[in-house]
């Protein structure tokens, strides 16, 4: 079981309920803007605390309200790719990529930096500063940074939102390779039908309240 989630998250003045179990591959949280998809992802990452329920990923309990388990974000081992790439502006591309990598013990590291850099095609960007990157370049670096942090699962929040069509196809292919070659559970937030049809092994609809 990749994801075993049953939670209620408060967001402003309403409560989002979300429950799903997904066997493997990519789980797409699908729904209109403002439905609370990002809140669910943030709960998986430990950024927001659910009101009740439990979260387990790949058999590991990250949150359980009844048992009083609530792992800090840095203890959850999630590779979070944000909608805005959130690269650290005061560090070079290389330092951004290696930020999580150097914090991990060797046995937790999934792939070598050279491999990830080649895989993402960002070797020529290493000495640049993030603000000189295009949207597509920044998002590839952000994906690399998440992969190199030795994640046990990947969270992606509309990673294609800021990209043009040709870049989108490129990143979609990358995401499929991550799924197939690294075998990591991936939770993917989207409101685009096309992405859902192409990527989803499991679809979790998240709707607006009636």
């Amino acid at each position: 079981m990749s994801f075993d989630v049953d939670i209620e998250v408060r967001r402003g003045d309403r409560t989002i309920s979300c429950a799903f179990k997904s066997p493997r591959g990519i789980t797409v949280l699908f729904g209109p803007s403002g439905a609370g998809k990002t809140s669910v992802l943030e709960a998986l990452a430990g950024i927001v605390k659910p009101e009740r329920g439990h979260i387990a990923v790949a058999g590991r309990t990250l949150f359980d309200a009844d048992q009083g388990i609530d792992l800090a974000p840095e203890k959850r081992g999630c590779g979070y790719v944000f909608q805005d790439s959130r690269l650290f502006p005061h560090r070079s591309v290389r330092a951004n990529l290696l930020y999580g990598w150097r914090l991990q013990p060797a046995e937790r590291r999934l792939i070598a930096p050279e491999l990830a850099i080649g895989f993402l095609g960002i070797g020529h960007l290493l000495d640049r500063m993030p603000r000189s990157l295009s949207g597509g370049e920044a998002q590839r670096v952000a994906i690399g940074r998440a992969l190199l942090s030795g994640p046990q699962f990947i969270l992606m929040d509309e990673p294609l939102a800021s990209l043009d069509a040709s870049r989108r196809a490129e990143i979609l292919t990358l995401i499929e390779r991550i799924r197939d070659e690294l075998g990591l559970p991936i939770a993917y937030v989207s409101h685009e039908r096309g992405e859902v049809d192409r990527l989803a092994d499991t679809i979790v609809p998240i709707g607006l309240p009636d």
């Binding site: 990452a45 950024i47 840095e74 502006p89």
Partner: peptide, 16 residues
């Protein structure tokens, strides 16, 4: 503060 959150998800504790 989103950058701080990003650092936390990458494995950095609050002090780091």
């Amino acid at each position: 503060r989103k950058l701080e959150i990003a650092a936390r998800t990458l494995g950095a504790g609050p002090w780091r």
